[in-house]
């Protein structure tokens, strides 16, 4: 080899290190490859490109021009719709997640009493979660909560004349929260599994000591279930931030009436495909990523104060 000896030695050492690394880990990476390639090409790559596009004025039809942080500056200083959509989304997250978890837990506790036909009930209660994000259910919701829908027919039997819930700015978002709570199936299944993990001798000991059922729930069930509650809370919070289909269908893509259902994702969609501002929409998307990450980090930080791990 004509190269200087020192460089050659360094090169050989590098090659040797790589060979050692490869012989130890190569097989692992080979097994990982199908997932890794998919992640790089389908997730990480597009995400990085969108980060670049968020610094441009890309309009889908022409090549993007670099605009620096102008999109972000506009979002934070001159975009009333950004604030409006943020308010709607936060309201939705703050009410739908706790309500949904409470409902899921209540049903799970009821089902955990060893009733007959549990698999059947479990399936029935899980069903809405499978259907919930579909277009058909959103359309059904429109029918239920419209002026002459089923809900108002029911209220009319009590002599109450209800408004068109789905298209009234004071109530429209609540119908979406109810729709979300109704899809309590997946947290319920996880709660049910968590309840099964709690040793029954704890309850036996407690009832021997004369603890009431509700006291048992607050002092045994809930504390031992906190890891499961934590998991469900994180997953559902992320899901709620990303909610899109129901608002899109129910408001016809407008976020109306009066922006009352303008979810953040819906606003992002409007900017990207309605008004062809893909660069601006990319910036909105990255802000959402940061917000979700911040919420998740906060949950993890707070968890050490209220989540009890058994071991």
């Amino acid at each position: 080899m004509p190269a200087p000896a020192a460089a050659g030695a360094a090169g050989a050492e590098r090659a040797g290190r790589f060979a050692r690394f490869w012989s130890a880990n190569g097989a692992g990476y080979m097994f990982l490859a199908p997932w890794l390639i998919g992640f790089m090409v389908l997730t990480a790559g597009p995400a990085l490109i969108s980060l670049y596009l968020s610094l441009t004025d890309f309009d889908l039809l022409r090549p993007p021009n670099w605009v620096g942080t102008a999109n972000y500056e506009r979002i934070f200083t001159a975009d009333a719709k950004f604030m409006a959509s943020m308010r709607v989304t936060l309201f939705f997250v703050i009410f739908s997640v706790p309500l949904k978890l409470a409902f899921a837990l209540a049903v799970a506790v009821a089902l955990n009493r060893g009733i007959r036909g549990l698999p059947l009930y479990r399936a029935i209660f899980y069903l809405p979660s499978l259907l919930g994000t579909s277009v058909a259910i959103a359309v059904l919701w429109r029918q239920l909560f419209a002026r002459d829908g089923l809900v108002n027919s029911f209220l009319a039997t009590f002599g109450i004349e209800g408004p068109s819930w789905i298209s009234h700015p004071d109530y429209a978002l609540w119908t979406l929260i109810i729709l979300s709570v109704w899809q309590f199936g997946s947290p319920m299944i996880i709660f049910l599994a968590g309840l099964r993990q709690i040793p029954t001798d704890m309850y036996e000991a407690a009832s021997l000591d004369g603890a009431s059922k509700s006291r048992q729930f607050w002092k045994i069930t809930l504390p031992l279930l906190t890891p499961v509650i934590f998991f469900n809370a994180v997953v559902q919070t992320i899901e709620s931030f990303k909610a899109f289909t129901p608002a899109f269908i129910i408001s016809g893509g407008t976020g109306g009436p009066v922006n009352s259902t303008l979810f953040y994702t819906l606003y992002l969609y409007q900017e990207a495909f309605g008004f062809l501002r893909m660069g601006y929409a990319s910036a909105l998307a990255w802000i959402l990523v940061v917000i979700i990450a911040a919420f998740t980090a906060l949950s993890f930080l707070s968890s050490r104060y209220w989540v009890h791990y058994d071991d």
């Binding site: 419209a146 002026r147 068109s164 298209s167 009234h168 893509g253 009436p257």
Partner: peptide, 14 residues
Amino acid sequence: PADLQALDQLNIET
């Protein structure tokens, strides 16, 4: 009234 008009999604069906 406004809550009825808001059902209109700017298509023929609604």
